[in-house]
Design a protein around this nucleic acid. Sequence first.
DNA 1: CGTATGACGTGCA
DNA 2: GTGCACGCCATAC
Length: 89
Amino acid sequence: MSQKSNKVTFADNVREVVRRIPKGHVMTYKEVATMTGRPNAYRAVGNILAKNYDPNIPCHRVIKSDGKTGGYNRGRNNKAKMLKNEGVL
DNA sequence: CGTATGACGTGCA
DNA sequence: GTGCACGCCATAC
C-alpha cells in the first residue's frame, strides 16, 4: 500500500479513484478531485484523464457537474449511451 | 524555470 | 436559457 518508493502523482490518485467507481454510479470531475484531496483541481483531473485514460479505467463514469457526460476519448463517443447501458439514468 | 495546454466550474451580460 | 470570459490545478515541453 502506500506508495513507498512509488511516486504517487495526482494522475495515479485520480486513476485509482475513478477505477473505484462502481457500476451504475457516476462521479463528477469535482467529486473525483475532492476524493484525491484537491477539490479545486478538477481541472487537473480532466487533464490527467485526458492524457492518461486507461482501458481499465471507466473514465466515462466521470461526468461534469451539470450532469452532462463531458467527454471520453477526446470526443463524446456514446458516453451517455454506455452509461445508460450500465444502469445510469 | 517559465509557458502553454486541458475530457471543468462558476459568474455575469 | 444561452453565450462568453476568467480562474484553478497539475502535467508536459
